[in-house]
Computed example of a mutant assay.
Amino acid sequence: MTAFPARDLEWNDLKLILAICRHESLSGAARELGQTHSTIFRRINSVEEKTGVRFFERFPTGYVMTDAGRTALAYGQRVEAEFNALGLEVLGADGKLTGRVRLTCPEAFAEDLAPGIVRRFRAEHPEIRIDLSPGHAAVDMARREAEVAIRATRTPPEASFGKKIGDFRFALYAASSYLERAGTRTLDAHDWCMIEGTLPWLVPLVWPTAEAGLPQVVFMSRASRAVLNAVAEGMGIALLPCYFADRYEEVERVSDTVAALDLTLWVLTHPDLRGTARVRALMAHLYEELGREAKLYAGNTRSPGGVNLLPRTDRGSGRR
């Protein structure tokens, strides 16, 4: 292993190096650390300058670890694991209904439903602060990226503890103005509004390949609400979570739920945190709140109106 002057390397420097190693890019590290790309650029240059060590080679395709970078990664992962284990043990033994709980949940849930749920929770537990992190990506609870997660998945992570709320389903939605304009056409010939990353979900249900479907996409966004608004404006049809779209009269459901995309909704935490008073209190509150709306998440509160764009023989033939 390559040696470098560890006395000049601080824990925050090592966290920075670990983040760049994990993502092999400054943009990925910036997202993980909640900083800007330019800040990460300045920080890694400063770390390399003060230590006199080059941890990464810069290429157009990304940042590649040098021998020193691989050494820092190996040591950093061990230090991080011990640090996180300490945090889990200390937090897991905390019996006070005070402090902060980091909650992660889907982006649309964070915008529409979470504020009310958190308000009602804090009415009972005013000394607990909830930090909300929207996103669909899996979180590493061993690294304490969040203490509680609301996740729609087929199989929750093995290193997790929690409760299954119920089914989580998707369907197709459109505005009446679009349907009138579109007339009769096959599903693959419609204009589509897409949540970024979901096009492959409709293979082979709608198109044989994602590339075949791309010309039909007229609007794409990472934000679920932007896609819903595009549908409401009559731009096209979209595949959306039922719990999100069924609450809005501006759009109508134009298919049954897509069985092949069925997931289950879970409330999860790290096993070491299940005894933490504030984590336990929040999870119990989420069990109750989400359980009351189980039919909404399962797509059982609305049904297709006069239009059903998904032929019965094709329902459930997609994959994810």
Rank of each mutant, 00 (worst) to 15 (best):
F4Y: 15
A6M: 15
R7L: 11
E10Q: 14
G28Y: 05
A30I: 07
L33C: 03
Q35E: 14
H37F: 11
T39F: 12
I44P: 06
N45T: 13
G52S: 10
V53K: 01
R54C: 12
F55C: 04
F56E: 01
R58A: 11
P60H: 11
T61W: 10
Y63S: 06
L73I: 08
A74T: 15
A74V: 13
Y75S: 12
Y75L: 14
A81S: 13
E82N: 12
A85L: 15
E89R: 14
L91M: 11
D94A: 07
T104P: 00
C105K: 02
P115Y: 02
V118D: 01
R120Q: 07
A123S: 10
H125V: 11
I128E: 02
P134K: 11
A138H: 08
M141L: 12
E145D: 07
R151N: 02
T155V: 15
E158L: 13
K164Y: 08
I165C: 04
S177G: 06
T184E: 15
R185E: 13
T186I: 08
H190V: 10
M194G: 07
L199G: 00
W207L: 11
P208D: 15
L214H: 11
S221D: 15
L228V: 04
E233L: 10
G234D: 00
G236M: 03
A238E: 05
C242V: 09
D246Y: 03
E250A: 12
L268A: 02
T269M: 06
G275P: 05
T276I: 05
V279S: 01
R280E: 08
L282Y: 01
L286R: 00
R292Q: 15
R292F: 11
A298M: 11
T301V: 15
T301Y: 11
R302S: 14
P304Q: 13
G318D: 01
